[in-house]
Amino acid sequence: TRVETATETAWISLVTALHLVLGLSAVLGLLLLRWQFPAHYRRLRHALW
């Protein structure tokens, strides 16, 4: 049971790290898009909202 718990903890930390990385890359990508294509971003936002 001790090994299982350790594996579970490792998986949880791995998944958390993955989610953090994905979230950060998504935010960075959005910022980059907004910085590179302001007109396109505004049009996209206008279409979405």
Rank of each mutant, 00 (worst) to 15 (best):
F37E: 03
L48K: 04
Y41A: 15
R34H: 06
L14Q: 01
L14H: 03
A17N: 01
E8M: 00
F37L: 09
L48C: 15
I12F: 07
L48T: 08
L32M: 08
T16E: 04
R34Q: 03
V3G: 00
F37R: 04
G23D: 04
T9D: 08
F37C: 07
P38Q: 15
A17M: 10
L18N: 03
L44D: 04
G29M: 13
T16F: 10
T1F: 10
T5F: 02
L48S: 05
F37P: 00
W11M: 08
F37A: 06
A39I: 11
T1G: 06
T1H: 12
L30F: 12
S25H: 06
L32I: 09
H46N: 13
T7A: 13
L14C: 05
L20E: 00
A6G: 14
L24E: 06
A10I: 08
H46K: 06
L14A: 04
H46T: 12
L44C: 10
L33E: 05
L28G: 00
T5Y: 01
V27N: 03
A6E: 08
L32D: 03
L48R: 04
V3T: 01
L14E: 00
T1K: 11
T7Q: 11
R43N: 09
W49M: 06
E8T: 06
T9S: 12
H40T: 09
V3K: 02
S13D: 06
L33I: 09
A17G: 07
W35S: 15
F37Y: 15
Q36W: 13
L20S: 06
H19Q: 02
G29S: 13
L24F: 11
H40Q: 14
H40S: 10
A47G: 08
V27H: 03
L28H: 03
V27E: 01
R42M: 09
S13H: 08
G23Q: 04
T9I: 13
L24V: 11
P38D: 15
L32C: 01
L22F: 08
G23E: 03
W49F: 00
A17T: 08
L20W: 04
P38Y: 14
S25L: 07
R2L: 13
L31A: 14
E4N: 14
Q36V: 15
L30G: 11
L24Q: 06
L18I: 07
L18V: 08
L14T: 04
L48I: 14
I12M: 09
G29H: 00
V27D: 01
R2S: 14
G23T: 13
L20H: 00
H19W: 07
L32E: 03
F37D: 06
T5C: 03
R43T: 11
L20N: 02
W11G: 02
L44E: 01
L33Y: 07
V15Y: 07
I12Q: 08
R34E: 03
A17F: 08
A47L: 08
L28R: 00
E4T: 11
L22S: 11
L28W: 06
E8L: 05
L32P: 07
